[in-house]
């Protein structure tokens, strides 16, 4: 019931607070939206809270205690169990796949986006741009069978490279779109004066466009990192041995093996999500503003 208390408090505080701003508030407080927002907060928080506190409970106390009460004696036993189940290997695999995908994907996308923006007169580059725009509509799921065939023929099946190569390709369309939207905002005069000073295209790309659009590069990198880190279908289809498992796949197999040990399973959920939460905490502002700018204002 703490919710209703804060709700009432906010409803009285909010107009006063916004009143101090330069923009005067429109008449009245948005009751319906406000109620929905605080309700949604509960819907979002309760499962997450439950996941985190349960991961610190022992299996025996899990069955008998109030599920929403924090553990009386928090234990790290579940985390030890998860780490002993080779999660360090899976974690390393996920890092290799994420970095191995995101770094080349962002660099290639940046070069392509730069070419598309700066060479808008070229028929070839306009065609490339159109191809990437259409690429936004290609769902990974529908392409996965031929991708599997290609990977087998390349003799890459059951390697991390098998996950990385198609992941790069499917990260490109959106990355090119967002990056080219940002490169367009770089004033043309800067390119002109750099050219006057004798700079080559290659130099303008890395010394001018790249530093000036760094926020967009970070946004695209974080977004792709999120996608690849959480990717499930490609590892599922393109690998098979435990040594090549990435974290989402490991979660699924771990659940199969430890089905009844709920606290341990939830500890594995927390552990696999932690790196991405940290990344979010660092790059949140850029991710949110960059995504809205890139996807749909």
């Amino acid at each position: 019931m703490a919710v209703t208390a804060t709700e009432i408090e906010q409803s009285t505080v909010a107009p006063a607070r916004s009143g101090r701003r330069r923009r005067t508030p429109l008449r009245g407080w948005n009751w319906i939206g406000g109620t929905a927002a605080w309700l949604w907060l509960v819907v979002v928080i309760v499962p997450i809270y439950w996941i985190v506190i349960t991961s610190f409970k022992t299996q025996s106390t899990y069955f008998v205690t109030n599920p929403l009460a924090p553990p009386a004696e928090p234990t790290l036993e579940n985390y030890r169990l998860v780490l002993e189940a080779d999660f360090a290997t899976y974690f390393a695999n996920s890092v290799i796949v994420a970095v191995g995908t995101v770094v080349p994907a962002v660099l290639l996308a940046f070069m392509a986006a730069f070419a598309i923006v700066r060479g808008g007169h070229s028929r070839f580059l306009r065609w490339v741009n159109g191809l990437f725009l259409m690429g936004l509509a290609i769902p990974l799921q529908a392409a996965v069978i031929p991708v599997y065939l290609i990977i087998i023929r390349m003799r890459l099946y059951d390697t991390l490279g098998a996950i990385i190569l198609p992941s790069i390709a499917f990260a490109l369309p959106l990355s090119v779109l967002v990056l080219s939207n940002f490169i367009r905002d770089v004033p043309k005069e800067l390119f002109e004066s750099m050219r006057m000073d004798g700079a080559t295209t290659w130099m303008m790309l890395w010394r001018l466009a790249f530093p000036l659009t760094r926020p967009a590069v970070v946004t695209v990198a974080i977004y792709n990192m999120l996608q690849v880190w959480n990717g499930f279908l490609l590892p599922l289809v393109l690998t098979q041995s435990p040594e090549q498992r990435t974290l989402p796949l490991a979660l699924w197999t771990f659940q199969g093996e430890y089905g009844v040990n709920v606290p341990a399973i939830l500890a594995s959920v927390v552990l696999t999500t932690l790196p991405i939460v940290i990344l979010y905490a660092i790059g949140r502002r850029q991710l949110l503003s960059g995504l809205t700018a890139g996807i749909g204002k």
Binding site: L108, A112, G135, A169, F170
Partner: peptide, 19 residues
């Protein structure tokens, strides 16, 4: 400029368009 777009294009054709 067209050369700059080539690596991304090759990747995308190989693992997006061809599939």
């Amino acid at each position: 400029l067209p050369l700059l777009a080539l690596p991304a294009l090759l990747f995308f054709v190989a693992f997006g368009v061809v599939p």
